[in-house]
Amino acid sequence: MSHSDTIPLHPSSQSDIDEIENLINASVHQSVPSARPPSPPRASIPVSVSVSTAPSPFISSNLPPPPPLPKSSVSAVTPSPPPPRPGIATSGFGPAPNTLTEPVWDTVKRDLSRIVSNLKLVVFPNPYREDPGKALRDWDLWGPFFFIVFLGLTLSWSASVKKSEVFAVAFALLAAGAVILTLNVLLLGGHIIFFQSLSLLGYCLFPLDVGALICMLKDNVIVKVVVVCVTLAWSSWAAYPFMSSAVSPRRKALALYPVFLMYVSVGFLIIAID
């Protein structure tokens, strides 16, 4: 009697044990993705970061957050600010540290260092001429904005009459010109990112800005022509690899000619305004 009673309980008990083990494994499996990535040890509010791929019609002047420091090198009492990141962003492994709770000075330094690194790509020989897509990967519109305003100011100071018209024409020419050039590349079937192109064309104005400044100080026409030709060649040389690689080789001339034309018109403005 008792022996026959114990036999049916055994498989039921075994199935209960199996089910408990499955639940333990399931809960362990579920807890792994929900765990929050470890944040750097400092007095900060925890944050979360998400990424969504979308076309970006808006101005952005942020550098991605710097890579996290090793924990042993960070003091628990006074956390040291992370070092500024190199200009070309590399997608690091692991979660990006938050920037919501950083001090304001870190934000300012990051933006300024990005502008400087983007300017170096235009002024000095481009280390990414072989792969121009990497140039100005961290695009921003602060540099182009400043250069356009500076060029407009220089031209309007040089002009003896109609300063307002000169400034408005220069600004509108450069701003609309950059947009039209980018749309031209897109319409030619080129693979280009709108704001990256705007950023590059704006940074390439820097040599022409220097030329305009020199022409404002010198009144000699021959000196003006020489300076403008040199800076024009420099701007075109800086813009060439990026714009040419954006379209297919057969349409390269169609993409490059309008860029050259815009810089020539700017150069002509610099020479003609007196």
Binding site: V49, S52, P64, A89, S91, N98, L100, D138
Partner: peptide
């Protein structure tokens, strides 16, 4: 960069990834 993250705990920017695509980044508390 400043008042957005201090007053409402939000921040946004745009960057280009290694594939050459434009990526939106959002941060929130």
């Amino acid at each position: 960069n400043v008042s957005g993250r201090i007053l409402v705990g939000l921040r946004w920017w745009n960057e280009i990834n290694d594939l050459g695509e434009s990526v939106w980044k959002f941060e929130c508390l």
